[in-house]
């Protein structure tokens, strides 16, 4: 059985097609772009380590900690979360792939693994060029002014001083925060902060672009502006991955949808089919 399948998948690979598994609820008939693959995810497993989550059974006192050491047990504070359990797919040039799934189904984790930011526990991710996550928030500092944060964020994304100078005014304009750029970010309203973050994050061009829930921020006008910006970025980028809970956005922008459920692919296909099934579930 195993040999047969292996042979089968090899034959399919020679056909320059996605080696699909038999007997899984995945439609194979949908027209996949047959261009060059840009991202290949091969039997990916991701295991997170979470610290500080102690179970109810053990009280976190020193005597218990000592007993645990003597009995050579692991720390209870350190839990392992198996977030992605064997995901495989191939993304092609020009694909805009939406990823849907419940909270905690592993969507963001998978994006980070594709971006090469989370080491795989098993399996691997192959990419063409450097995939970048649209997320610069982590580099910014709340105590600093907007000006300093723009410069810091641009450098964190790997821009050169000349690029930063060229993009600076555009970022301020796009964010629309005006003179607040001279105030510390801690004084911003949540909408203003989100607008500035998106403006900084989207100032750079990318090969493979990973967008994680970036569209749900700001007021109506900013939402329209950011949607346009994302469309433009999609045109530049070879492949776009989009995580969103807003299914309309996915239906509008994506030509393929992957449904993740508890760390596994439940369905992979064209938006209508998958979203219909997802809505029924």
């Amino acid at each position: 059985m195993a040999e047969l399948t292996k042979e089968l998948s090899q034959v399919k690979a020679e056909d320059n097609n996605v080696p699909k598994q038999d007997g899984k609820a995945r439609p194979t008939a949908e027209p996949l772009p047959t261009g060059t693959p840009t991202v290949i995810v091969d039997d990916l497993h991701i295991v997170y380590r979470v610290y500080g989550a102690s179970s109810d059974a053990e009280k976190g006192n020193a005597a218990n900690a000592l007993m645990r050491l003597l009995r050579r047990q692991g720390r209870p504070q350190m839990r392992e979360v198996h977030a992605i359990k064997g995901v495989s797919f191939v993304a092609y040039h020009g694909d805009a792939i939406g990823i849907v799934g419940r909270n905690g189904s592993g969507k963001s984790t998978m994006l980070r693994a594709i971006a090469g930011l989370l080491p795989a526990h098993q399996g691997s991710v192959y990419t063409d060029g450097q995939p970048s996550l649209l997320g610069v928030n982590a580099a910014l500092m709340r105590e600093l002014t907007g000006e300093r944060n723009i410069v810091l964020g641009c450098y964190a994304m790997g821009m050169t001083p000349r690029q930063v100078r060229a993009k600076y005014d555009e970022i301020v304009d796009f964010s629309g925060i005006g003179e607040f750029v001279q105030f510390p970010m801690s004084t911003y309203s949540s909408g203003m902060g989100a607008r500035l973050r998106f403006a900084i994050a989207s100032a750079k061009a990318h090969d493979v672009l990973l967008i994680d829930e970036a569209l749900a921020t700001g007021d109506r006008e900013f939402k329209r502006k950011s949607q346009q910006r994302i469309q433009a970025m999609r045109a530049e980028a070879g492949t776009v991955f989009l995580v969103a809970h807003n299914l309309d956005v996915i239906e509008e922008t994506c030509n393929r949808v992957i449904w993740l459920h508890k760390g596994k692919i439940k369905m992979d296909g064209d938006p209508q089919t998958v979203l219909a099934a997802y809505n029924r579930a």
Partner: peptide, 19 residues
Amino acid sequence: RGKEPLAELASRYGLRRAI
């Protein structure tokens, strides 16, 4: 499945491991 097919596909198109 063996890892060979996808890995081969990746190498044929010159894709590199993300990490």
